[in-house]
Design a protein around this nucleic acid. Structure first.
Lengths: 141, 141
DNA sequence: TATACTGTTAATATAAATATACACAGTATG
DNA sequence: CATACTGTGTATATTTATATTAACAGTATA
């Protein structure tokens, strides 16, 4: 099974993290159905131009999140997580993001109303309604 | 001028960061008016039980954010930033938090409506309306 | 100018994050 | 069982983040 992942050795972002983010996204989006056999750590490492330890770390991390299952001698598979668990994991990731953002807002003494207003502006900028999905709304990024 | 800051050497959070967060908060909240002379790096270091380099780093970082002014031989002062700039800085910090949270939401393929719903739940949990401000709303933290 | 303060710079130590090579162990299959 | 695959564990190298000391330079003032 060929996994469409792109990594850049020049990026400041660690390779293991680049791979994790993309592979997690492929699993959560359903592009890699439950039970899919992933490439072996050696095969994947050669394809991406990194060490097998780096791939192993990715597989270990995602297994810790319940997204993968590994069996020594056999291989690594997309875990058969129920829809409920998957949805819960997705929600948890987003909740943690908002928790941090709200903590920042409290730190700089934003009022509740001000916080809501800023959120709405950010949402309009980075997650606009579907009917309007231009390449770049004309504003600075 | 005595600056009320508490640091814990046991915390996993780096000391320079603990100090930065608290000092930034004191400035942005107005507890330290513009022009206030801060303790010298040696005096502050002794009071907090760290090296002068650590205090220097804090002063440098906050100066980079436009919150402090330093003059060699004289001391370090709370910068005379205009209300507009200060408000802009506050907003930028919160915007960056929400940008990261929304990026996460997009990564796990949250819809716009789902993202809004999660935000509202988080807001209710960590920044409840003023009329209801219990010690801990009865839920897990 | 002498002194006593102020911040500054360079060199360095320590710990944590990131990435690796190599030897080891489990599994499937002839 | 022999082979060729699979993941695993140990020891280690490299880089970055964090923190420090000691010598240096600017400023105010008697």
């Amino acid at each position: 099974m060929r996994i469409p992942i792109q990594v850049s050795a020049e990026s400041a972002e660690p390779m293991y993290h680049q791979i994790e983010v993309q592979l997690r996204s492929l699993i959560l989006s359903g592009h890699l159905p439950e039970g899919t056999l992933l490439p072996s750590i050696r095969e994947f490492a050669q394809e991406l131009g990194c060490s097998i330890i780096t791939i192993r770390r990715v597989y270990q991390d995602l297994e810790g999140e319940g997204l993968l299952r590994t069996r020594q001698g056999t291989g690594t598979f997309v875990a058969s997580v129920g829809v409920t668990e998957r949805e819960q994991y997705r929600a948890d990731a987003v909740i943690e993001g908002f928790r941090a953002a709200i903590e920042t807002a409290k730190r700089v003494h934003c009022s509740r109303e001000e916080t809501i207003q800023i959120f709405e502006q950010c949402l309009a900028k980075w997650m606009p309604p579907e009917q309007a999905q231009p390449e770049n709304g004309g504003k600075q990024e």
